[in-house]
Amino acid sequence: MNIFRLAGDMTHLASVLVLLLKIHTIKSCAGISLKTQELYALVFATRYLDLFTDYISLYNTLMKLIFLVSSFSIVWYIRHHKIVRRSYDKDQDTFRHYFLVLPCFLLALVINEKFTVKEIMWTFSLYLEAVAILPQLVLLQRTRNIDNLTGQYVFLLGAYRSLYILNWIYRYFTEPHYVHWITWISGLVQTLLYADFFYYYFQSWKNNVKLELPA
């Protein structure tokens, strides 16, 4: 464990808690893409299959449980909570996210580190995580303005993956056999997807104006 990875995990945790906080306190999911949340629940479900088989550390197991419970409860809130569900704008959240699942799965079948069920599911979860934010970014594009909590949520998500890139660089130089090209490339693609959002987020923050994404 290194500081970059710990900071990355804490930032990732913060992003999920910010979202849960928003939905739980103001009982609204306005501006949040259910599709992105469903993709994230799928990412964690397919990545943490080894939750009960490979014990790595208490921290690892605890964080996996937190991510699983929080991502599925966010999906539950938006889909089934009698008040929250009313604020879900399904007419705007129209990204056909199932079109992301199949290509990621096929790619995981072809490009992976080991052709085993667990490894393929793990690789699938990596590719899916790289594109999972797309429905949310499309929704932000559509609804033009975004409220602070949503902006912070996307910002923290991007920041966590950027910190992980620093973690991979650190591990590459400190652990002789640590080479995971698949992880690095998909993590890089994911961060680049956030890059343009970051640009506009910082612009709005610097000029102290409400975030406006270009059409």
């Binding site: 995990d9 080894d50 490979d54 790595i56 690892n60 991510f67 992980y164 992880t183």
Partner: peptide
């Protein structure tokens, strides 16, 4: 499983 083989990151 040995550390490198299994993925130790979240």
């Amino acid at each position: 499983s040995d550390q490198l083989d299994s993925h130790d990151e979240l």
